[in-house]
């Protein structure tokens, strides 16, 4: 059974002020509930001011992800996001512990535990940028990132996607199919993307298409990651 952790932010008071969001709790807690309903274990559920940037930052950069995001098998983050022209993703927090934003260049996932990371935030696997440049240094045993290109809706009507994905993922369904099916919205034009690492091209494509929670693929040591494969619907 997998260990699950979620962090979500709807409220952004100063000094981390941004426009408020409304349903990040729905997507993250829905994901958590869906996974728990399939027998997996909730490790943490931090929302708003209790969600900390340092939970995502590697100790190599002074962070504490070893005790939080990198201490679970499957993590889900829901908030504002953006990827800049330098191909660095920023995820936004509502409290400054230690920073208001976590950035992909300070992420090293899987050097302890994390295998799968969902980022329910805008521009999180942004295909108009170089997604390999953005994320390659994060894969230290991490197998897959499940995220979005362009903007993703924050609305009640699409807020069930975290739960819908989790009930399939938690049941041993193919992760990419589950993410693309459940998070794609024709109505709101939400475009989900998944990205997997591999030793070779065929390995990366195989993992992207067939990876399942508790499936047969092992972790890939950082030095052996040579390829990435990604998939999306538009």
């Amino acid at each position: 059974m997998a260990k699950i952790g979620v962090e979500w932010i709807n409220d952004f008071p100063p000094p981390c002020d941004q426009n408020e969001l409304s349903y990040c709790d729905e997507t993250s807690v829905g994901f958590l509930n869906g996974m728990v309903s399939r027998g997996h274990t909730a490790q943490f559920n931090w929302g708003n001011g209790n969600a900390f940037e340092r939970d995502f930052r590697d100790p190599a950069f002074g962070g504490d992800d070893t005790n939080w995001v990198d201490a679970v098998d499957f993590a889900h983050f829901s908030s504002h996001g953006s990827t800049n022209a330098s191909n660095v993703f920023s995820g936004f927090f509502g409290g400054k512990v230690d920073n208001c934003t976590w950035t992909s260049d300070k992420a090293r996932f899987g050097n302890r535990e994390l295998e799968y990371l969902c980022i329910d935030a805008c521009n999180s696997l942004e295909l108009s940028r170089d997604i390999i440049a953005t994320w390659q240094n994060s894969f230290h045993g991490l197998r897959m990132i499940l995220a979005f290109t362009d903007l993703v809706s924050d609305s009640w009507w699409t807020g069930g996607r975290g739960y819908n994905f989790a009930r399939r993922a938690g049941n041993g369904g193919r992760l990419t199919n589950a993410w693309l099916d459940e998070c794609y919205s024709f109505w709101c034009d939400d475009n989900p993307v998944t990205m997997a690492a591999g030793r070779t091209q065929s390995d990366a494509v195989n993992r992207r298409d067939n990876e399942r929670l508790g499936g047969g693929f092992g972790d890939i040591p950082r030095a052996e990651v040579s390829w990435f494969a990604w998939r999306w619907r538009s």
């Binding site: 990651v225 390829w227 538009s234």
Partner: peptide, 20 residues
């Protein structure tokens, strides 16, 4: 009929970054 969508697959190696 509202739209014909497509699933896209892509891959690239770390060295050349050439996207297929």
């Amino acid at each position: 009929l509202r739209r014909v969508t497509h699933m896209h697959g892509a891959s690239a190696d770390l060295e050349s970054r050439k996207v297929t």
